[in-house]
Each structure stands twice: as structure tokens, then as C-alpha cells.
Nucleic acid binder design. Sequence first.
RNA 1: GCUGCCGUAGCUCAGUCGGUAGAGCGCGUCCUUGGUAAGGACGAGGUCGUUGGUUCGAUUCCAAUCGGCAGCACCA
Length: 661
Amino acid sequence: MPVLDAQVAITLPDGSVRTVARGTTAAEIAASISKSLAKAAIAARIDGQLRDLALPIEQDARLEIVTDKNEADALELIRHDAAHVMAEAVQELYPGTQVTIGPAIATGFYYDFARDTPFTPEDLVKIEEKMHEIVNRNTPFTREVWARDAAIDHFKSIGENYKAEIIEDLPADQTITIYRQGKWYDLCRGPHLPSTGRVGHAFKLMKVAGAYWRGDSRNAMLQRIYGTAWRTEKELAEHLHQIEEAEKRDHRKLGREMGLFHLQEEAAGSVFWHPKGWALYRALERYMRAKLDAAGYVEVRTPQLYDSSLFRASGHWDMYGDNMFKIRESVAEDGTEKYLGVKPMNCPAHVQIFRQGLKSYRDLPLRIAEFGNCHRNEPSGALHGILRVRNFTQDDAHIFCTEDQIPTEAAEYFKLQLGVYKDLGFDKIDVKLALRPDVRAGADSVWDKAEQGLRDALRANGLAFEELPGEGAFYGPKVEFHLTDAIGRSWQCGTLQLDFVLPERLDASYVGQDGAKHRPVMLHRAILGSFERFIGMMIEHYAGKFPLWLAPVQVVVATIVSDADAYAETVAAACRKAGLRVEADTRNEKINLKVREHSLSKVPVMLVVGAREAEQGSVAIRRLGSQQQEVLALADAIAKLTAEAQPPAVSPVDDSTDSAF
RNA sequence: GCUGCCGUAGCUCAGUCGGUAGAGCGCGUCCUUGGUAAGGACGAGGUCGUUGGUUCGAUUCCAAUCGGCAGCACCA
């Protein structure tokens, strides 16, 4: 056994080294540095690991004293401890409730409880009060190491079966630690703050909802209480304010207020696009079509209904049959039923187009695009406004190419896609690579190749990415593009999927230079994802205030006096002729009201006309959000607005694109 | 799909301890012609999500069902 030094060397962040007795705690070292640091200390970072202040240091180490200035660490600790405080509060108020897990999350924490009676909003108020009480008690968190079997037996004996189960499933070499706060204690890996008082009072319980034990829908449903917690009351207030701001942007609310679309129960999960919403949709579609044309895609249109045999062959019938809309077409005399399926994606259809006629390597890459209208029978609980619907249109395309062409095609796609996101107002994009799922088609060697292919393509294009094991599609890995919106929320939109499996299953082939048949590779790709979802997201991103080229109504001509009505119609007609989406507001209302209403409905430009403008043949331009007005001659105003309303840098349509059929 | 909550006028909501309902905004008509974020008066509008049950009587109580909201699960 090696002889242990009685002293250990502690390296502080400033590079200085202190020699202290073995077993000295970080708290003691902080105290030796300064009184104020000892007071501010909430945890320690020992060799990069966040640990308890009270943990004895047994060997040479780098040490950083964590205070609430270290935002990420402080929030993590406060939230995690708030979860413990909440669990204590719940068990104190509602004996018999079992605790399970309670982690810190992005803006707060939650704890899952097993209890037969549902928690009510009134219960949350009581729990919150009790939490404040526990924080005021300021009892220290203390760490204990328990023997595994003893811990299991103990938790079973007090009826905490979920806890016992958690311990049973911990790796054999894991130290079982228990944290105590006064009379209450919980199995926990730690670390924790020095005492409950350090949690502070900047927390609030937000909601209670169901959550499956271990996230598996086959398991019992627990009750999850969510809370938010911050370092200061100010941070808490800011967060609550941000939630209110997000609610104001809700696309369901704005969609109604702006007259864009509606949903109704007779067509749950499908969108009724109103004229204004459809104008927006068409503007986006027109832009996308021009981008695809310029990028050498060919556009197609494929059927909605297919014999089930196609989806059986592709694998979708088995994988996703429960979420497909199926129609029984006939029953044969022997009882055999024949089914049709409404297409839930476009890939098998595009393979059918590829398969028409013999394809040569000279035809590749073949980029088949479709604004593909799909139906998926999403579970009722999944539906959400127009963000998650049962009928949607993908900006879908499948690139049939050779393996050699993958890097170039991927690069072209990245370029196209990042340009589109930029044009649409998004410049923060996170890239993720979703790897093979447990249930999948295709041999592992094929998956190795596909995954590596995407990694290579991402690296070659300088895109940093995070890997997500198990998240890929059943036929191939996928690159996901997550956009960050104006208020910092993340939305998964585009994907690029590399697929060696479907061409095989649906027997797609081309004749190579060697005269033999070869399998093409398929790249599945979408930039927006679906128009419905993307538009919903854009409504929230822009808070309804779209750039001029996308705005559902670009211009409103508003009259001040009814004597200007005829002139207003002239102005509106001229705008319309120039291609602007325009409305004339000649109602017998005051200009104040008109300005207010059109401002609230986010119309970017108002052309105000009164007797003076009618007389001079001019318009007073008033921009949304500005009090300024600019009086211009009608022709000048139209020229100016028309120029501004141009969609961003769309190259002209290239009609010479080779068609393979 | 699961858990919880909810479904009253176009919208936001109040109300009925069981006796068929109200407000504001919006809408219509009229007055007002007003220069950049709400001018005024009057009026119309609801079989209280649907179906069934309990009851003399249900929008109110119960059940089922459909839909919505939050979260979970799912998301080719």
C-alpha cells in the first residue's frame, strides 16, 4: 500500500498552489482565502468536477470555488436543490407520496411523484409555501455513503419502491450517496448547495402534468410538478416576462388575429388556410420553387393514394402503419382484404418516377422535388396548432446519385439550405447527426457507410455537429438542422438523410459506365420541413411582423375623408397592378382607428390618403412601428415599395435543366 | 395514445348551490368627414361541444364521446 502524504497540493484558478492537510474541504480552503469568498461559496469545482463544498479533498487537485457568479453552475445547483426542497415539501404535506427523480432542466426543475390523488393547482400553492418555509429553515445538505443492499432494503421498507428500483439499476461500481436536509433525505448523486437557505426564494411552481415512469409509455404514469428557479427575483421576473412574450407570439393566436388560417374539429389536424394565410404560403412556395429550379431540381407531383403493397415494400407499412390513413378498398371472396394507404411521405413515389425508363449514370444526380402533400395520423395528443398536423406539405426532394456524388450533393444542399434560412431571417443554426435506431432496415455495414458519409460531408463543409445515437430514421441516418428563433427557442426544420436501403427495397437502379446495373444512393432532404410547421414557426419568430416580401397584406390604403375614397381605390389598383398585395380601407372611420387596427394586424405599410394627397396625386407612407410619414408621388411610392417587396436573391428559372424522362 | 385541466355569442371571459343566460371587444344601422394607435347612439347575435342518463325540469349533476390546452410518449 502506498504511503499517503499528509499534505495535498491545491492549485487555484490564478495558478497559485496551496499546500493543505489531506481531507481539508473546499469550504475550509475558501475560508482561508477570504471571509467574503467563504460566504459566497456554494460549491467547488475539483479537477473540473462540480462537488460539494464540504467534500474532503484527498489528493492533489485543481480547485475552483464556485459562487453564484458562475451562472451555469449556480443555476444547476439551485434548481437541483429546489427539486429536493419541493420533494420534501410534497412528502411533508402529502404523506404516502413516493418520490422518484427530480432533475434540473433548462429553465428550472421538476420532480416526478407517485400518488393516486392528482395534485391540483391549489396544492401547488401549498407546496410552494412549504418550500419557502423549508428554505427559511436553512438546514444543511449533508452527504452520506450507504451500502447498496442496505439502501435498497431501506427504501423498500419505507414504501419508496421507485427509489429502490433506481438503486437496483445503478451500475455495480457506483457509490450510493444519500443527501439529507434536516429530517428529509433522498438518494442523489449530488452535488448540493451547503444548505436549503442557499436555494433562495426566486422560484415558482409552474404546472403539474403526467409523465411516464422512465419515459416509457408502457409504464405507470407519474405526476410531474414543474418549477422554475433563478438566482434572483429579478431573473425570475425576467423569465416570467419572457413566457408572457412567447404567449403573445403564439401562432394560433396571431393566426386568428391576422386572419391567416383556422382549425376546426371536423378536420382536426388539418389547416383551413384563409386568403391572407394562403398569400403568405404562396409567397413562400414561390420563393422555394425558384430556389429549387435554380439549384437544378426537377419538380414532380405524385399520387395521394397507393396500394398497400408499395408501403409494404418500402417498409413504412410495418414501421408506421398505425400512423397511416388506410382505406379498405375491397374484400375478396376468400376474405383477403385489399388496402390503400394515403401517402405519409413522398420517397416511395419518387422512386417510382425514378424507375420509369432506364436510367444511366449520365442522368445522375437526379434531384426530384415535390411540394408533397402528406397525411399522417398523428396521435391526438401530438397535434399542436399548425406546428404538428395530420395533413401537411413537405418541401421534399430526393436526390438519386452515385456514392461518389454524395459529398458534392451534400455540399450543394448545405449551401442552398443555409441560404434559404438566411433569406427567411434565421442565422443561428445547430446541426445534429442522428445515428442508427434500434429498430432499423439495412445491414450494419451499410449503416457504417451511411453514417460516415454524413460525418464526412458535414466536416468537409465546416459544419460543427452533435451526434444523437439512436435518433435516425429506420432507413438511414439523418442530419437535422435546428433553427433558433428571435426569442431563443430552437426548432428542428431541415433534414438530410442518407439512404442505401430504399433503393434496394424498391429496386431502383441505373446503368453504369461499365454497362452493368447499379444501385443509386438516395438523399432525402427538406429545407423547411413542412410549410405548415415552418409558417407557424415564422409567425412566432417574426411575432407576425413579416418582412415586406412575405407579409400577407403588404399595403393598406387608408382614407382620412370619404372624399378621398375614389383616389384610394386608384392607389390600390395601381399597387395591385404592380404586384403588391394591397387592401383599401375606405370605411367611415377616423384615421386613428384605421392606423391602430392595421398596426395591430401587422400590416407593414400604410398609404394614408386625404384630400391633400388626392389633390396632389401623392401618398403618405406610414411604416409599421414608426410614427414617421413620408409623402411621395404615387408612382415613386409604388416603385419604391415594389423594389422593397422583391423576394431575396432568387436566381431566374433555368428552363434548360435536363429532364431524365 | 396517456395523465390532468378545459369546452357558455365571431373573440376574451363572467354566470346559473338544477327553473333555457350576461359583459367588453367585434358585427349591423344611423349620426359624425375626423390628418396618423380606440368619436358617438341604437341594435342584432347563444338549442351553454355532442350523445345518452338522473330529474317534473339539465347549460348546470353523472357517463360516454369529440375537440382544445399543458406535459409525457410518438414524430418515417
